Simulated assay, not measured.
Amino acid sequence: MDLVLADMFPESRIHYPVIFARLFGAILLGGLIGFEREARDHPAGFRTHILVSLAAALFAIISIEAVHMPGFTDDPQVRIDPLRVIEAVTAGVAFLAAGMIVFSRGRVKGLTTGAGMWLSGGIGLATGFGYWPIAVFATVAAVCVLYAFGKIEKKLGSDQGSKSNGEQ
């Protein structure tokens, strides 16, 4: 039983409470962006943005831990590069975000939601790597851009906003 427990809770470079705090932070920060999208009734909303941010944070944490795993550090032939994780998350989220963008009746729709998903991935990576101030600032900036500029676009006329980014 001890072996099973040791396997379930291996030695970790990052302490488990910190890991859980980072994952929870990714949930909160991704949720803030998703909440704004949900409030505007866009297809990728609250849950989608949370999952994107949480997954990115998880991949960041795993890449930090993998660099320090005993099996990988002993063999000089095995090299773990956390930058590849960032590239993979960026590409994967960009693929999901691209799926949100549609061209319908001469208009592009979903571009802002796709960009929000991509940003949620970046925020999740920042949180997962422990860059809390960057993640929080990016979240606050995103919510301000989405909310405040959405209001400004609405005041200027709803057609202007929909022509520039496909959403209102």
Rank of each mutant, 00 (worst) to 15 (best):
M1K: 13
M1S: 14
D2E: 11
D7M: 10
R13I: 09
R22L: 06
G25V: 01
L29T: 06
L29D: 05
G30C: 13
G31V: 01
L32G: 07
I33Y: 01
F35N: 08
E38S: 12
A39C: 04
D41I: 13
D41Y: 15
P43G: 10
A44C: 12
H49N: 15
H49W: 11
V52G: 01
S53A: 12
A55G: 15
A57C: 07
L58F: 12
F59M: 11
F59A: 11
A60G: 11
I64C: 08
V67T: 14
D74T: 12
D75R: 06
R79A: 07
P82C: 10
V85M: 15
E87K: 06
A88G: 10
A88P: 02
V89N: 03
V89I: 14
V89E: 04
T90H: 04
A94Q: 03
A94V: 08
A94L: 13
F95A: 01
L96W: 05
A97Y: 00
A98Y: 08
G99V: 05
V102C: 08
R105H: 13
K109V: 12
G110F: 03
L111M: 09
G121R: 04
G122I: 00
I123C: 03
I123F: 04
I123R: 02
G124C: 11
T127Y: 06
F129R: 02
F129A: 07
F129Y: 15
Y131D: 12
Y131H: 15
P133F: 05
I134C: 05
I134K: 04
A135S: 15
A135G: 15
V136I: 15
F137M: 11
T139C: 04
V140N: 07
A141F: 09
V145T: 06
K151M: 12
I152T: 09
K154E: 15
Q160H: 10
G161N: 03
G161D: 04
S164L: 15
N165P: 02
G166Y: 02
Q168H: 10
